[in-house]
Amino acid sequence: MKKFLGYLLTPIATGAFLLVLVIFQPIQWVCFRFLGYAAHKRAVDLLNLCLVSTVYLLGNSVTFTNKQDLPLGRPIIFLANHQGLLDIPPLIWYLRKYHAKFISKIELTKGIPSISYNLKHGGGANIDRKDPRQSITELAKLATRMKENRWSTVIFPEGTRSTDGTVRTFQSAGIATLLKKCPEALLVPIAIRDSWKMIQYGNFPLNTFTPMYWEVLPPIEPTGRPVDEVVLEAENMIRAKLG
């Protein structure tokens, strides 16, 4: 029944999603060009709130839980498991006060209304996976911006999204690069549950009446510890929460 309803509701939800992207493209442009970073960020925050809201058109729900008392004046590296593109809008909206930036494939900086513009101008890192030197350079620049502006970053250490919710082994190289340039950053794991179920049939039909959950877990102090060790600790915390 849920899949059948997906055939009916997916065009409505997808249409609303695309409409939001088109509407916010010129809004972002005006904010960035004439009003500066703060206005552009508010536009991006509101954009992602609207994108999150479109999932409710499918009867799905988003529950984001953050019971941690995280510092606002310290850079944070949020580490999350990755289940689909829907993972990102709730992270941007609910972590907005931490100025969370993303590490994205450079291919996404072209051709997608609103999303591509934000990736180019929002302060994150756009990496070319075929060019390791460029990737390291971009991550180092992002870490410098984190240090200078007290921004945070969301990274998906699995390297690719899981299609069935299974947590893959976390890679530590990107986090090591960030910590090298921004050693004062705090590591904070985030467990994402069941967002993969919304796209378990692909982009059409989208699944319906599916509850999805994001939970911020206790922070990890990386100072004085091997990067591989703290990344493994974050991975194990996420696995335990989802297990």
Rank of each mutant, 00 (worst) to 15 (best):
K180H: 12
R129V: 07
L108Q: 11
V22P: 11
K120V: 11
A43F: 07
R225N: 06
R33N: 12
V230S: 09
C31K: 08
F34G: 04
N118I: 09
S152Y: 03
I115P: 09
R225V: 07
G6K: 05
Q171Y: 09
E229L: 13
R145D: 03
F64I: 01
T65Q: 01
P71F: 06
G111S: 11
N60Q: 02
Q200I: 10
G159P: 05
G59P: 00
P26V: 12
P157Q: 04
M237S: 14
W29E: 08
T223P: 04
G6Y: 06
T63R: 08
D228W: 06
T54D: 05
L232N: 11
E233A: 13
S104N: 08
T177H: 14
A16K: 03
L79T: 06
A39G: 11
A125P: 13
S116M: 11
C182I: 06
I175G: 05
L70R: 04
E215I: 10
V188P: 00
T169K: 13
G122R: 04
R225I: 07
L79E: 00
C50W: 09
P26A: 12
Q134Y: 05
N203Y: 03
I12K: 01
T65I: 08
I12V: 15
P189G: 09
S61C: 00
K67E: 06
L79R: 02
L119C: 10
K2L: 08
Q25L: 13
G122Q: 08
T63L: 04
M198G: 01
K180Q: 14
L47K: 03
G122P: 09
Q171N: 10
F4T: 13
G15S: 10
N66I: 01
M198C: 02
D87E: 07
F102H: 10
K147A: 05
Y7W: 10
L72N: 12
L58K: 04
F17Q: 05
T223R: 15
C31T: 13
W93S: 12
M146C: 07
K130T: 13
K181S: 11
L179A: 09
V227C: 12
I112H: 04
P75Q: 10
A125L: 09
G243M: 14
N66F: 01
K180M: 10
F4N: 09
W196F: 11
V230D: 06
T14H: 05
V167F: 05
Q28D: 08
I192F: 01
L21Y: 02
N236S: 13
P189A: 06
D128W: 07
K110I: 11
K241H: 15
F170G: 02
K110M: 08
T63F: 00
L51T: 04
E184G: 04
I77R: 02
T109Y: 07
K241E: 09
A80M: 12
I175P: 11
D45V: 15
